[in-house]
Amino acid sequence: MELFDVYPLYDVTPVSAQGCYIIDDKGQKYLDLYGGHGVISIGHSHKDYVSAVTEQLERIGFYSNSIKNPLQEALAFKLGEVSNCKDYNLFLCNSGAEANENALKMASFETGKYKVIAFDKAFHGRTSAAVAVTDNQKIKAPLNSQHEVVFLPLNDEDALEAELSKNDVAAVIIEGIQGVGGLNEGSKDFFGALERLCKKYGALLILDEIQSGCGRSGKFFSFQHHGIHPDIISMAKGMGNGFPVGGILISNSIQASYGMLGTTFGGNHLACAAALSVLNTIENEQLIDNVNEVSQHFLKRIKEVHEVKSVKGRGLMLGVSFDFPVSEMRKALIFEEHIFTGGSSDPNLLRLLPPLSIGTAEIDRFIDALKRVLNSIRKKENSI
């Protein structure tokens, strides 16, 4: 039996990792500026994280949600404390797609409506409802067309109100910062209009913070840069630092009923231990402050790279835009400079999602490497 062919694979086989670095089976060390799609938040193999998960496994790793799990209550309390979102209730699941799936279901239960507004270039996951609100026809099956979804351009308040005023919209779902879509972000005024118009027309506002949450933007959630209060917040990725865990924060004005949402593995003992360790580390090591400090250093140093057209995003969720495709550059960064970076649906954008614990020395290494790679590409082009 062979694996189903899903992704084009780089010929690198990681066998261990520590902090911001990965080591392959040949002993080569790589600087990780991608964090496995933004999953690694507190750094690879953080000692407190490893201890928390190991010690929990030695006690109890899993039991069903039909019994009390005090770790879930501890996680909900700590998440409210660290995120400053205390007026929400937490539902735990296993992934970002599952979080969005439940968020959309919750909105439909609450409003009695079924239509959803999403945005151009959005990516919300690959499960049924989550992929329906994703603006990528390549990953949609005919089954997904059963959902009624309207896609609107970002920052178009008139188009938003025109659609909401039909009074048949259950929810508006938006990423705090688009990840796969190319680091696009709604303006502060647009986020304010989203909140106001959703309230006016009885739709719920769902903030997808799966990639932009857990401190990555320089605040715990990226919507906090805009001073709004969503009805539902979805999260995952950095929440578990590699352990599969996701969740939705549901405004406490929305009432739950038994059987409305459910999960077998969500909120299991190991997942809660991992997520609690992440939150404690973010708080104890002041990683959100580090995000802002390192981000400012990056923005200062990237100005030295004259080929850069623009920088998009916030904090340590960054897109470096060029006037040409970055695929060759990414390969050179991996195989010549031993640095992992990411791409997006924009072929000209280099996406950076490093661990929040990264330091300025690693940023300096990347900038210097990027200059060398660009210089090498330029020389090759001139020799043709």
Rank of each mutant, 00 (worst) to 15 (best):
S64G: 15
L143V: 12
L143Q: 13
S217W: 01
I42H: 01
E185F: 04
L152H: 04
I282R: 06
G242Y: 02
K237M: 13
T134M: 06
D189P: 08
G19Q: 05
L352T: 04
D5S: 12
F340A: 01
F151S: 05
I174D: 00
D289L: 10
H338W: 06
K188D: 13
R378E: 15
Y88A: 03
Y258G: 14
A332W: 08
K47V: 13
S310R: 15
N292M: 14
G246Y: 00
A193T: 04
F77K: 15
M317T: 09
A130N: 01
V53Y: 04
I339K: 01
L143K: 14
G43Q: 09
A122K: 02
H226K: 08
P14A: 05
N382W: 11
Y7F: 14
E81D: 09
E304I: 12
F324N: 08
E81P: 05
E157Y: 05
Y49R: 09
A256D: 15
G359Q: 07
S345N: 15
H338C: 09
G80Y: 06
F322D: 03
L104S: 09
G213N: 01
T360F: 08
I67A: 14
I248L: 11
M329F: 10
G213L: 04
K47W: 11
R330M: 15
E2A: 12
A132G: 07
G182W: 01
K166M: 08
F119C: 07
T264R: 14
V150C: 10
H226W: 08
H269G: 08
L104A: 06
I206L: 04
T54W: 11
T111F: 03
I23A: 06
P325R: 06
L152E: 02
L374Y: 07
A332K: 10
V6Y: 12
E98Q: 12
T263L: 05
S295H: 07
S345T: 13
N348A: 10
K312Y: 12
Y88M: 02
N375W: 11
A76C: 10
L183G: 02
R330P: 05
K86M: 14
N241Y: 03
S128F: 14
E55N: 15
G96F: 00
V133P: 03
V326E: 02
Y34N: 15
L353M: 10
G227Q: 07
G96E: 02
P355I: 02
V169L: 01
